[in-house]
Amino acid sequence: MHYQLAQVNIAKAKAPLDQPLMQGFVEQLEHINALAERSPGFIWRLQDDSGDATAIQLFDDPLLIVNLSVWQSLAALKDYVYSGEHLTVLRSKQHWFDKLAVANLALWWIPAGQLPTLAAAKQALQSLQEQGATGQAFSFARPFAAPSLLAVSELAVR
């Protein structure tokens, strides 16, 4: 079985998105989403009819924004997140978002062809927060190989 990488990240906006403080973020959103879609290894991202996910609520706090996507590999996602224009936006996040005291990004493997649910995303964040990095939910700092790759590497050790 082949696997793909699901990722969820949340951010707490300093103000509602229609406020002037958030204008710089909102103005870049469409471009950054399009950049993700054109990036090597991109498969899917959560979006509503407006083309983004900022109105989709994962938690009760209306200022918590969710981003959920699927990538072919950890390397593909890492290349997108930590290079080019996305990195520039990432470096400016403190202008628009408050630091969270809980896990704000979780990664997990899903069977190829499946899409992650909001419930699975919430569970991955909770799992990472409560248990630390595991095969069920991990981070860039403590990644886990896809299950099919684990099985192959375990056989090679025997």
Rank of each mutant, 00 (worst) to 15 (best):
L77C: 13
V66F: 00
S92C: 10
I56G: 12
A34W: 02
D60R: 10
L58T: 11
H86P: 11
S39R: 01
I32V: 15
I65L: 13
L90G: 15
H31K: 12
L90S: 15
L107N: 10
P62I: 06
I32A: 09
P111K: 04
N67M: 10
Y82L: 13
L100Q: 09
Q94I: 04
A55W: 03
L90A: 15
L46Q: 08
K78T: 11
V81F: 05
S69F: 06
D61A: 09
H86G: 03
F42Q: 01
A112E: 15
P111R: 02
L125W: 04
A36H: 09
D48W: 05
G113H: 12
L105Y: 06
Q47R: 11
H31D: 10
D98Q: 14
A112M: 08
K99F: 12
F97L: 09
E30I: 00
L87Y: 07
Y80Q: 02
L128G: 10
I56K: 03
R91W: 02
A120P: 00
Q114I: 01
Y82R: 09
Q123V: 13
L115A: 07
V81D: 03
I32Y: 11
L77K: 04
L63V: 11
A121V: 14
P116Q: 03
A119N: 10
Q129S: 14
L90F: 09
F42C: 03
E30Y: 02
R38N: 11
I32G: 11
L90Y: 09
A36D: 07
L107E: 06
L105I: 08
L128N: 07
S39W: 06
P40Y: 10
A112F: 10
T117D: 04
